[in-house]
């Protein structure tokens, strides 16, 4: 939208910022929701929540990264 007014250095900085943050976001989402799923599995003696939580965490973290860095 405002790509015209922004200086190229700022664009480069934001882009580098996004590229370095995205892997840690995805990893964090996977760890948190996968971890919750794993705990639920242990508690309820099931094996379904760990994969669901992992994928859900990845999706949420991807959504967060996409919304945060693409303007």
């Amino acid at each position: 939208m405002s790509a015209q007014e922004r200086r190229p250095e700022e664009d480069g900085r934001d882009f580098a910022d996004a590229m370095w943050s995205i892997p840690s976001y995805l990893l964090a989402g996977m760890i948190i929701y996968g971890g919750i799923g794993w705990l639920l599995d242990r508690w309820l003696d099931m094996s379904a929540f760990f994969p669901i939580g992992t994928v859900l965490g990845l999706v949420l973290a991807g959504y967060l990264a996409y919304r945060k860095f693409s303007r």
């Binding site: 996004a18 590229m19 995205i22 892997p23 995805l26 991807g62 990264a65 996409y66 693409s70």
Partner: peptide
């Protein structure tokens, strides 16, 4: 960004 997120 979208492609990178999905691939990662």
């Amino acid at each position: 960004l979208l492609g990178f997120v999905l691939t990662e």
